[in-house]
Nucleic acid binder design. Structure first.
Length: 284
DNA sequence: TGGCAGGGTCATA
DNA sequence: TATGACCCTGCC
């Protein structure tokens, strides 16, 4: 892989296991949109454009310094996905899913944004989840003016803890409005924070997150996997259940059993397995 | 055009 | 441990 500064950004050449469509559509991110000549994302108060050119990818509206301090970690650039896939593919059943989503990477996203985004995701569909997040950002987030136009950052915890429930309802949050407000308060008070979560074991972190209203096992696993590097997390949703039933004959087994099965089979790589299975399943 | 299902969670029994 | 309700809206 070669990384170099260009006039318009940072160019990545010969990067393996990297497919923007798969990365942005494997269920982990809600704020990337397809533009006419690439992808536009609002990430940590910044707007990034990702464009495929000359057999590589250019990250526009950024520089080398910011690449090293922000984007390399965000895109998980330095992780050896080849090794992960080789290890997981020892299990024949998941091989096809890995080949299908071979360009997936697990993004390192903002803890607070993931927490609220996945509370919103409960019993909801993806287009609507994205719409709610956009409206919350527009209503409560900082405006970002970039060469690509005007965007709005994801609102901070103070903004949402102070928001009127009525206004959250107007953004389309529905019954999740009070969960968002209360969880925002818990984050604002420091009761729940990335600082605490990051140094905890997976199990401890899970138990802390479960104290937040609107956060069950699945939502907590998403937050831990997508923002805290807890790769043993295995978010178990209806899609993954379907995939696991088909691949491993787990029909009729309950969530506890399926999670135990995944832990046994995928171990510390369970989160990566989940992403390959999810993307493969929703793409059928 | 109406009715269903949707990246689950929570309360109740 | 198992059901049903739940805001709202895409989508068939």
């Amino acid at each position: 892989m070669e990384i170099r500064q260009t006039a318009s950004g940072v160019f990545l050449k010969d990067i393996e296991h990297f497919d923007p469509i798969q990365i942005f559509e494997c269920g982990q991110a809600f704020r990337w949109v397809k533009a006419k000549d690439g992808f536009l994302g609002v990430v940590r108060g910044r707007v990034l454009k990702l464009k495929e050119i000359d057999g590589g990818f250019e990250l526009q509206n950024t520089c080398m310094e910011e690449f090293q301090s922000v984007w390399a970690q965000y895109f998980d650039i330095y992780r050896d996905y080849g090794a992960i896939k080789t290890e997981l593919a020892k299990d024949d059943a998941i091989k096809a899913a890995i080949d299908f989503g071979s360009g997936i990477r697990i993004l390192n996203q903002d803890f607070w944004e993931m927490l609220i985004s996945f509370i919103i995701s409960a019993n909801n569909n993806i287009p609507r989840i994205k719409g709610i997040i956009e409206r919350l950002s527009f209503r409560y987030g900082e405006k970002i003016t970039s060469s690509e136009g005007e965007f709005y950052a994801f609102p901070d915890s103070l903004a949402l803890s102070c928001a009127a429930e009525e206004d959250l309802l107007r953004c389309g949050c529905g019954y999740r409005a009070r969960y968002i407000k209360e969880t925002a308060r818990m984050v604002e008070s420091g009761e729940v924070s990335f600082e605490r979560i990051k140094d905890m074991s997976y199990r401890e972190a899970l138990n802390l997150l479960l104290k937040c209203p609107g956060v069950g096992h699945k939502v907590a696993d998403c937050v831990l996997l997508f923002s805290a590097g807890k790769y043993e997390a295995f978010p178990l949703d209806v899609w993954i259940k379907r995939a696991m039933e088909k691949l491993y004959g787990l029909n009729g087994k309950n969530d506890v059993y399926i999670r135990g099965f995944a832990k046994e089979r995928f171990g510390s790589l369970a989160g990566f397995a989940q992403q390959y299975l999810f993307y493969s399943e929703i793409s059928r």
